[in-house]
Design a protein around this nucleic acid. Structure first.
Lengths: 206, 206
DNA sequence: TAGATTGTTAATCGATTAACAATC
DNA sequence: TAGATTGTTAATCGATTAACAATC
């Protein structure tokens, strides 16, 4: 019940379950089992049952899980039954791609505002957004109440922009910049540096 | 020594250390300590020393680590002292961004070939690449000996393209598509679905 | 009922931390 | 030498797995 008690590693798996459940649902299934779900995400059935049991009893013995029901439960647990407005900072190729990304709707997110510090880009259009000046981050984000940001600026600017985001009240950053960020306690960061992803695999190659 | 013995969770931290070391080096430092390095990446000094000790003795008591030396060692361990050619499949916004990404050089990677299945894109230019037909994946990748791919196609096409990549001899996939992939043993996948990254944080927000 | 699958407990396994001798 | 920091051991902590009673 108390969220301090739920390990972060369990929380980090729930979105994977949610994504897989929707995929299975898309195949026309109404019911699934921990075994089937586990096979589809590469996690043991026991672990899935253990993870879910942290939050309640969602299944039926002998039957399994009602997919629609479990999806709804996971969405609530993860707080993605609502829609979070998200800011994107940095309108290079990566920021541009995120600003136009179609995969956020139905997953709990909507890009609401985009920033860049390049005068050539400020005031211009990206997707259906007008690019705002990075200098406006604090006022604009505070005003809108946005708590989530995606960071796509060069590494050299990332910490400075992060500081602005903190001042603006942002509490969660999806960081594409190739650098570790320093943030106050209570602020979450997820790292998506593509080079790190690749370097985690080459060790295993010949 | 035997790589079966090194836990994957340790391997996954080494690229973080490498990135931080380069950052510290960029500030003009020649020597660092497990404490300083740990502070910069948010990991305990003890853990960093333990992780590194799996591969040898890289430091000096009382002094710390020679940054240049440790960088070189980590690059060798991770096999990124060489340059890996990488294929990008899917020339939507995300694939486009990766094809033009400047951050791979000096980190061990170079985009070498890009694919799409859209006739309107095949033969066209993205960055300095000519877009090849997805149908050519097996022959072209086999011929070039490429072992690493980045997958940026829609979820509905991802498994099918993955199967082609397997047939082509690819052993490592950086997957941007919002779906769990099924791959044979010995093939590595790293997942970078942006929605998953965001959903791992909203639980902690109010 | 018979078969299947959950939720949960206990056992196992693995990772992290604390502490310190060694030594630069 | 005195101070600092490594590499490593042992202790602690946490996560995963196996097994099964409960029950649909």
């Amino acid at each position: 019940m108390n969220k301090q008690e739920i390990p972060d590693i369990i929380i980090s798996r729930l979105p994977i379950y949610l994504r897989a459940l929707r995929h299975i649902q898309g195949e026309g299934k109404l019911i699934t089992s921990s075994q089937e779900l586990g096979a589809s995400v590469g996690i043991s059935a026991a672990q899935i049952r253990k993870d879910l049991s942290q939050f309640g009893e969602f299944g039926k013995q002998g039957t399994g899980y009602d997919i629609t029901f479990l999806i709804d439960q996971l969405r609530e647990i993860l707080k993605v039954e609502r829609v979070w407005n998200v800011a994107v900072v940095g309108m290079g190729d990566m920021g541009h791609a995120l600003a136009r990304y179609q995969g956020f709707s139905d997953r709990g997110f909507r890009v609401a505002i985009v920033f860049d510090n390049d005068p050539a880009k400020i005031g211009g259009q990206v997707g259906h957004f007008v690019v705002r000046d990075t200098k406006e981050i604090v006022t604009a984000i505070r005003k809108s109440g946005i708590k989530v940001a995606m960071l796509c600026v060069p590494a050299a600017a990332a910490q400075e922009v992060t500081n602005l985001l903190m001042e603006a009240g942002v509490k969660a950053i999806l960081n594409y910049a190739p650098i570790s960020l320093s943030v106050p306690a209570g602020v979450r960061v997820q790292y998506l540096d593509p080079s790190i992803g690749l370097q985690r695999m080459t060790y295993y190659l010949d």
